[in-house]
């Protein structure tokens, strides 16, 4: 396993929580395959982070880890161990931050996460109709 893959895997629970919070807020959680789609989206997103150019991939992993740790300063526990409600609050805080790189970080997860989630949804729907 490559070093990049190993490093990225360290933040997989945070990636999953981020996906869960950005997708659930906008799209709800009541789709029958929601949990499965979140898992699949997380897998694809971690692969995407690994496949980024090195000069983006490593900062993205680092930023994800920092985002997780920031939760400790806010709620006393890392982001990925917070409740969904708390997670959504933290996402909002970074999304509306005056610091551009924090907004960009959330923007990446929102856009790519939504795109990948809907790809999973589309695949499921197509599978049902086949």
């Amino acid at each position: 396993m490559s070093l990049r893959k190993r490093v990225t895997q360290q933040v997989t629970p945070v990636v999953k929580s981020l996906i869960q919070s950005v997708v659930s807020e906008e799209l709800g959680t009541d789709h029958p395959d929601h949990a499965q789609h979140i898992d699949d989206t997380t897998t694809v997103m971690t692969e995407r982070i690994e496949m980024m150019p090195t000069f983006l991939s490593m900062p993205m992993v680092l930023m994800t880890a920092v985002f997780d740790a920031y939760g400790v300063t806010r709620k006393g526990k890392p982001f990925h161990r917070q409740t969904l409600e708390q997670q959504i609050q933290q996402v909002h805080q970074w999304k509306h931050s005056p610091i551009g790189s924090l907004r960009d970080f959330i923007d990446f997860y929102e856009k790519m996460g939504t795109f990948v989630y809907y790809c999973q949804l589309e695949n499921t729907e197509l599978g049902r109709h086949e």
Partner: peptide, 21 residues
């Protein structure tokens, strides 16, 4: 304009995105 592409271009832009999608 597949479903995922439309969802991507709606991100952060629309309220009630789920209903629209």
């Amino acid at each position: 304009s597949s479903l995922p592409h439309i969802a991507l271009w709606l991100t952060g832009q629309a309220q009630g995105k789920r209903e629209k999608l």
